[in-house]
Design a protein around this nucleic acid. Structure first.
Lengths: 333, 333
DNA sequence: GTGAAAGCGCTAACAG
DNA sequence: CTGTTAGCGCTTTCAC
């Protein structure tokens, strides 16, 4: 038999409402009663029933976090940070993974919708119309996707991409290939755009191959196409792919960075300890998680939620995989 | 204005209970009415209010998953699998990380207790008394910890450890060091026990150093102590530590596996692509996640929940980090 | 400073 | 097959 407010109240000859107040508006209850209540509540092991509370207040103190793939190394850091900060704001986190499937994402969002105060959607693949619809029904924070009128946490790869391209050009590369990620991804489109812009500015060739599945395997599968372009350096959609490309190149007898420089995006923990260590454009997913949680907390506090866009900057981390200049024979420029 | 059962019912001149039945016990409602309800519900965008449902049914269709560290590479796979399977069973997953702190774990459990149908506790550091208490209040599944009368998913390292020790002995190692993990960890105690047992059986020396923090940094910090033992092979509490040890040994000019063999436990994804690739005792956290979700689903279905213990076996994966025999000079046996 | 009463949205007997 | 009724545990006016 679980203790409820009524149990506690009855035990003290009080009304449930008083006990409720003792927890929610302590200043409106005399110190003496408050203490007696605290004591009995503790003794009975009273814990508030969140469903009952949610039913009357309309708030669940829970947010939903939806990511494409929980096991993809970029997300754990994001989820960890988001969870920790949400918790600090009194919110629990419902986590779900879409397996990169829009259908699944739709289904998840639909089910989660009414049991959370807000939804954080990472790299959402939903249609514009669906996003609009959703934004009307709940508080929404988009990560890695920009949408008019909706709060978002965006990674601005401008700095990182500029540094990356300048780095490669300084090393003597004149033809660079981008191994693209998921077709409908906002991040991918953004990276293409920035790379093209820098390539033009620096007057070098940029060629794109893909799309590829943004995993280690996807990268391994991309290696052949990458080589076929005749480029001396490859920038992959993310570190996982870059690592996969490195592995496949190693198997094919292509030396990194001597025959081909490799670069990723994210700076997942493995990148620092791979061989060769991977040069990468660092994205702080922890910061992204924190920002998401903060936006959600503002929303929950009932603040007038003007859509807010938080932009996180990126930075090049140079490691061994782009360490040397390309060998003379492979330079085309 | 959000649509409720009442809204839908009113629109059709029906009673809310009929609409409720249309969703929960469709066979008790005529096809015609059911269709009209479906149509209006769709049109109004009706979504059930889970708080209201939970309040009356007593079930939240949500389970809590508590892990020490969301970003620790062993857990994402676990969480992913648990979430996916729980979802398949109609349950959402509330995720929380304890930061390896018992106090935080206590606090989390306390808050989650009344908003879930059950709790999956990974590597819990709670006191025995607290576990007993908790088991009385909710459905409990322990992962990596055995406790009388409580369902659990356990990793049986027996096979893996035996294979590991035989492998090392076959390579000529006669003195092996175990770099221990967290003091209060059931897994750590278990690994010590099994290693000692095998060492005795195989008549070789086993020495233990630690405890260390079970991270890459913790491993790096352990390297010196490991060397000081004069052992020719080290088994670390987990892959993260093993990788850290490898890094630190490399810096110190100790060749792996020539001067020292290194072995971990878990087979996290990084282990396969580190240099040298890490020999490890593979633990399938995905299987553990699935098993946890299954136990929780049984519990939720109201089945008489005899405590069930699921045991997962382990297997040695040999890679380069134990590839050679120890060099002659360093063999003591 | 505390009590009384109403109701959040839904389900679960029980009637009809 | 459908309507009626009651109530889950809590918060929130409104009285006193």
């Amino acid at each position: 038999m679980v203790a409820t407010l009524q149990t506690v109240a009855a035990r003290l000859g009080l009304d449930p409402s008083t006990v409720s107040r003792a927890f929610n508006e302590p200043e409106r209850v005399s110190l003496r009663t408050r203490r007696r209540i605290a004591e009995v509540a503790e003794e009975l092991g009273y814990r508030p029933n969140s469903a009952a509370r949610a039913l009357v207040t309309g708030r669940t103190d829970t947010i939903g976090v939806v990511v494409p793939d929980v096991a993809n190394p970029v997300f754990p850091e994001f989820v960890k940070s988001a969870q920790a900060h949400a918790w600090g704001n009194g919110q629990a986190v419902l986590l779900a993974g879409t397996d990169e499937s829009p259908d699944r994402e739709r289904e998840i969002v639909k089910r989660l919708l009414r049991q959370v105060d807000g939804l954080v959607l990472c790299s959402s693949r939903l249609d514009q119309e669906e996003i609009t619809d959703l934004a009307a029904q709940t508080h929404l924070v988009l990560v890695n996707r920009r949408f008019p009128g909706v709060s978002a946490v965006l990674v601005d790869a401008t700095d990182g991409v500029r540094q990356a391209m300048e780095h490669l050009v300084a090393l003597g590369h004149r033809r660079i290939v981008y191994a693209a990620g998921p077709e409908r991804s906002w991040s991918d489109a953004e990276r293409r755009r920035l790379l093209a812009q820098q390539a033009e500015r620096l007057r070098i060739d940029l060629v794109v191959v893909g799309p590829f599945v943004p995993t280690h395997e996807g990268g391994a599968g991309a290696a052949e196409a990458v080589r076929a372009t005749g480029a001396t350096a490859v920038v992959a959609y993310n570190d996982l792919m870059a690592l996969g490309i490195q592995s496949a190149l190693a198997v094919a007898g292509v030396a990194v960075p001597d025959d081909m420089s490799v670069m990723g995006v994210d700076d997942i923990s493995t990148s620092a300890i791979s061989t060769p260590a991977l040069t990468t454009i660092r994205v702080s997913m922890g910061a992204a998680g924190e920002a998401s949680a903060r936006l959600m907390a503002e929303v929950a506090s009932g603040a007038v939620a003007d859509p807010t866009v938080v932009t996180l900057s990126t930075q090049l981390v140079v490691r061994a995989s782009t360490g040397h200049a390309p060998s003379a024979t492979s330079v085309t420029g």
